[in-house]
Amino acid sequence: MNPIALEGLTVRYGQRLALDQVSLAVPEGSVFALLGRNGAGKSSLVRCLLGEQKPTAGRTLLLGRDVWRERAAILSEVGVVPEEPDAPPSMTARRLSRFCSRLYPRWDAAGVEARLKRFGVSPDTPFGKLSKGQKGQVSLALALASTPRLLVLDDPTLGLDAVARKAVFEELIGELADRGTTVFLTTHDLAGAERIADRVAILNQGRIVLEEEMETLKQRFRRISFPSSRKEAVTRLETLAPVAVASRGWEVEAVVSNYDEGRLVREDEPEVSALTLEEIFIAVTGVVEGER
């Protein structure tokens, strides 16, 4: 059973289509990163995923159950780190931990204290007085304390500095190493996602335009440079499925999404290099139509 399964998920706000027939499955034990530009529909998808929003069509299965109908029961096995930390401002982390401990079947209060200590966050400071990064860290500590089967992280590093981002991802890596929890992550921190995700999907204008294993993805995408005109290059790279082709003086630089060394014409001694997740993301979502 896949801990997350979206079936034809559609969300419409009046005339605007935020999610269009989105279907995807997150395998057990995987770290799934959902990437997308602002306004791609990530927030709507996460709200549907957590049962906070009813989709216009389709359904969301979390741990095998319809989350809209059985949200409360399902969430006892799900840890959530929201995009905007939303705990009551007057509550300290300790009181939040005490409050949450009454709601979950398992609660690791000592684990919360330990994590906060590692993050350097005082458990007795009211939540409203913490910095944004600290709020995110408290949220992560609380999300992990119930030893969830599934962890949903909605852009947990948004607005965090590099040190805080690193702390969050290290904590996650440690957690994953310890327990093998399934993680669903949306983020703009593509470098961070690249470190921990083993599966990735890209959401663009409400549709899933890409979804596969991180390794396969990185093998499939390559940057190829060789001297040529743009028109000629497009013809020559056709079998490699170019997603972006740009002229750089005498040379053409192309990103292909179906790289196969055997099918590459070697006469121009093309320069082939691997892409980072960020570069793949930009190639897939940031392509200006005229550059193709």
Partner: peptide
């Protein structure tokens, strides 16, 4: 103030 999500992210029924 978009704080109701704190409760809805917990195993609490409406």
């Amino acid at each position: 103030e978009r704080r109701l999500g704190f409760y809805f992210a917990r195993p609490l029924g409406g």
